[in-house]
């Protein structure tokens, strides 16, 4: 059985092709999903890619969150469907309240683009099982509004429940509270992060292959050999 992983394209998505390519390299079948679709075409998992959905109008992810496809994604995610939100996808997941908190303008106001070292804090989610807790990985980071914020109570809850999945190392690139780069929901099926694992899946294109584990984790999870 080949796992089918959907990749949503919103108007303004940039990294849907790279996400689909990463899915293929991980041994799964990428399935293109359009923002107007309400049917998820029998996919086993969904990726919300990076980019500038709907031009980032109003707030990043705010309009995408109300797109037809997200109506179904939200419903299915609550029932356990694995969903990964990368960068703009993370912003969409926060706007949809599938993940707590919000992403705000980088504290230094500049768009940042760099290879970012991260520590994997939680290797038990649907998207991180091919890593080990404490493992350090380097994947590209590129955003203008990547500062993770939430109230102290929510931050304490995330830390206490092991729901901080990735933390920035070396420097905090955008003013994120407690160096948080990515989080998960209580069930561990929904993961969002600002850095881009789909850009680090092949030696040929640089930045190493540290990102491939996201996609192989999902595949193993889906075919039941995790």
């Amino acid at each position: 059985m080949t796992a089918r992983i959907g990749v949503v394209t919103f108007p303004g998505s940039l990294d849907d092709r790279d996400a689909a390519r990463a899915v293929r390299l991980a041994g799964a079948e990428p399935v293109a999903l359009w923002h107007r679709d309400t049917d998820l075409r029998d996919v086993d998992a969904v990726i919300l890619p990076g980019g500038f959905s709907y031009g980032d109008y109003l707030r990043c992810g705010a309009i995408a969150r109300f797109s037809p496809v997200m109506g179904t994604v939200i419903e299915r995610a609550r029932a356990g469907l694995p969903v990964l939100g990368i960068c703009n996808g993370f912003q969409v997941l926060c706007e949809a309240h599938l993940l707590p908190g919000a992403l705000t303008r980088n504290d230094h106001l500049h768009f940042i683009c760099r290879d970012q070292r991260l520590r994997v804090e939680n290797a038990d989610t649907a998207w991180t099982r091919d890593y080990t807790a404490g493992q350090e990985i380097t994947i590209p980071l590129k955003n203008g509004e990547g500062g993770y914020v939430a109230d102290e109570h929510t931050l304490d809850e995330l830390e206490g429940e092991g729901r901080v999945v990735f933390r920035y190392l070396d420097l905090n690139p955008n003013g994120s509270r407690r160096d948080i780069a990515g989080i998960t929901n209580a069930a561990g099926n929904v993961v969002g992060l600002m850095p881009h694992p789909e850009h680090a899946v092949e030696d040929l294109t640089g930045s190493g292959t540290d990102g491939l584990g996201f996609f192989t984790s999902a595949v193993k999870n889906l075919v039941g050999i995790a």
Binding site: T104, R105, N106, D107, H108, L109, G147, V149, D151, G175
Partner: peptide, 12 residues
């Protein structure tokens, strides 16, 4: 923005 949320644009 809520008072407790940093407003880097306002600061700039």
């Amino acid at each position: 923005l809520k008072p407790e949320i940093l407003d880097p644009q306002g600061q700039a």
